[in-house]
Design a binder for these strands. Structure first.
Lengths: 247, 247
DNA sequence: GCCCCGGATTAACGTGCGTTAGTCACCGTG
DNA sequence: CACGGTGACTAACGCACGTTAATCCGGGGC
């Protein structure tokens, strides 16, 4: 009943017991498990369901004809894989598991009836889409303007805070089950250069990265170096239009 | 009554006479005009209204502390400037006019009552947000993987098709009121390099760019060179979940 | 008609990052 | 315990692109 999706949405709005119950039930009806590096959905597919990440890491990616690959988003527990399904028939990108993952499958109709009974859940779903957009905009800034070091530092800040929002951090550490190749595909850098820059980040004490564990000894300093400002993540309950109708 | 917003939404769903009427009325209630290069909203502001572009070009942009600037989206007639207002209090980026623009201002409440009376308009609004997300994802790919020439070619394809969708092209030509500096800020390139690459595009006959008019003699060829595939724009009426309940 | 100014263009030079290609460390497997 | 495989790491070299700075051009104001 305590699942990361609810934890995620509660960062935005307060949910009633009934809403949580309905959501938890919908998300436990059908569960799909995949191994690391398996594809969840590939570009061109016509998904019938919406997938939510319950456990593990996944990513969105696009591939160009000549093989170049760009990871366009990381998905951690609590994230929605494919809200697009609500408006588009066909996937315009692929979804891949990075680690072994557990997904909840909710049918389009199921999700729709959920949002039709609860305006608050509807708002929450819109909110997740807008946050996804805000994150994507920030990635645009990273790839367009930030140096390699800033890009990686920025990404680490983002991932750490997103994981913390769903209770998946331990002090100033979190898991980071990504290869240097993955980091390169996400930041638009070669794996070789990712390696070089990681050394610098390590040697300057900004991060500790060993095994699959990332530690950020001084988050404020890493944020400063990476020109990171957390507002775009909208992690605090700012209150959108819903609150206008509420006490 | 025939305004670009309706033209835009009709690319996704068929609207009833009443819905169009209500939308057109809401969009004509309050109109705001700005000169070229003026700011519409700046980061940190707390907008009370949602803005729609009726005429002219605008852009979203973010600025880093040291002055680096990234344009994260171009807005043309029919586009929604700030759907965020529905969920976030504070702007996490700025909006600027590129040319003189005419905007429709709709209050949060006004928009909400519009979407509450018509589920179809609600769906259409969700659709515009998802398209914005899809476009942002494609920009991520461009900045991460495409070469300078591909980036510019890709951008030209995108803008041309988006303008065509709202009836703002003339044969294989359209307006392009952007400076080479703007193009650089959008593609993550220096204005000098934008200039170099434009020469190549011109000399190879892929584009004609003179005055503020862009002509694409052979769109298919430009698409090929830029690794452009139009699916991410979702310009065709694919039918989302709404159609499931319809004849 | 002249001035002024933003934008386009060009040139010379520098560099951050990619590419290629190799070695090394680790881990699960038979 | 040898093995194969994957990911981390290193080194040498090259290029796409940035930086700086100068010149050119066209349009609007008076």
């Amino acid at each position: 009943m305590d699942n990361p999706i609810i934890r995620r949405l509660e960062g935005f709005t307060r949910l009633s017991r009934d809403e949580k119950q309905a959501l938890a039930e919908a998300a436990s009806q059908r569960v799909r498990r995949l191994g690391a590096r398996e594809d969840i959905l590939v570009e061109g597919e016509l998904p019938r369901d919406v997938h939510l990440v319950l456990d593990g890491w996944a990513c969105r990616y696009k591939t160009l004809e000549d093989g170049r690959r760009q990871i366009i988003a990381f998905l951690v527990p609590g994230d929605t894989c494919d809200p697009h399904t609500l408006a588009f028939r066909e996937m315009d990108h692929s979804l891949g598991a990075l680690t072994a993952v557990t997904l909840a499958e909710i049918s389009r109709e199921g999700l729709q009836s959920l949002t039709e009974t609860s305006p608050r859940l509807r708002q929450a779903l819109v909110w997740t889409m807008l946050v996804a957009l805000a994150v994507q905009q920030e990635w645009t800034v990273s790839l367009g303007q930030r140096t390699a070091l800033e890009r990686l530092g920025h990404l680490f800040c983002e991932l750490f805070l997103r994981l913390r929002a769903v209770g998946l951090t331990d002090g100033n550490s979190c898991e980071l089950p990504l290869t240097q190749g993955d980091l390169g595909d996400a930041t638009g850098l070669s794996n070789v250069h990712v390696n070089r820059v990681l050394q610098v980040l390590r040697n300057s004490g900004l991060i500790i990265l060993k095994g699959r564990i990332l530690t950020i000894p001084d988050l404020a300093r890493l944020q400063e170096v990476s020109l990171f400002s957390a507002t775009y993540l909208h992690l605090d309950r700012e209150g959108g239009s819903l609150d206008a109708n509420e006490p």
